[in-house]
Design a binder for these strands. Sequence first.
DNA 1: TTAGCACTCATACTAAAGTATGAATTGTAT
DNA 2: ATACAATTCATACTTTAGTATGAGTGCTAA
Lengths: 138, 138
Amino acid sequence: MKKTILIFAALIVAILSLFQLSKYSVLTGNTAIETVIAVIAIVFFIVGVIINKKVLHQQKDLNREIDHKKIADLGLSKREYQVLCEIASGLSNKEIADKLFVSESTIKTHVSNVLVKLDAKRRTQAIQIAKTLQIIPQ
Amino acid sequence: MKKTILIFAALIVAILSLFQLSKYSVLTGNTAIETVIAVIAIVFFIVGVIINKKVLHQQKDLNREIDHKKIADLGLSKREYQVLCEIASGLSNKEIADKLFVSESTIKTHVSNVLVKLDAKRRTQAIQIAKTLQIIPQ
DNA sequence: TTAGCACTCATACTAAAGTATGAATTGTAT
DNA sequence: ATACAATTCATACTTTAGTATGAGTGCTAA
């Protein structure tokens, strides 16, 4: 929030300077008015694009951001959440075990716990529920 | 595509008119240069926002649209695609069978075919691949 | 320090998923 | 008309997933 205010302040100062500069340049006859207008136009075009991108990006992030609070509320441990993510990427229990350097039986324990905590009957349902709860990337 | 070209053409004409108008206004002393610059700035700012929004919106649509051509390319039949979608929603073979009013063995056949056509080893991997190929909703 | 939690692993089991094969039916395009 | 693809179903099988239970280890907060 402070960052936003600072950026806007800097922007306003820059624009005012540009105005003064353009006025001076034109009055002293150093620069053609077309050039000044072109520069102003380009600058404001770019500013428009950037601001718009920032706003849309924030909205996008909100839609895609992982809800860490919900992960905690569900009581998912760090390891269980890791396993959930690997399930969602399509790995088998054995593959997850090899990736995390533990035994398959350990993964089975984690998977069972994840299913209980997400109230899912199957790993595919767990994926669906986790996406709905926005605790894994879409 | 034709629409885009028309819009851009109109935009260029409008901008050129604005330039001429501003030049004329300033030369005849009817308008202060600050006003002209302000108008130019506002117009280009708005144009920047609009163009940016359009581009991002198209990208968004592309990300969410289902690629029906790819479904056909993969050789997925209508029924196989239906089954794939139900898998992605987290249903078991039995549940899919009940939903589509066929036997579980029929669903197993479809699932096997889907796995071969998507080059997946498991249904969870099929979900992941289908999402990557954008043939099922995210 | 000890109670509790997270993590690990094993065994033994049941349930579900997936493969392979063969076959019947139906609509459709040549 | 017939060849073809899609859909359906069954049986028999292997593999993977998931459950239940018990237990050992290490870390941490009361």
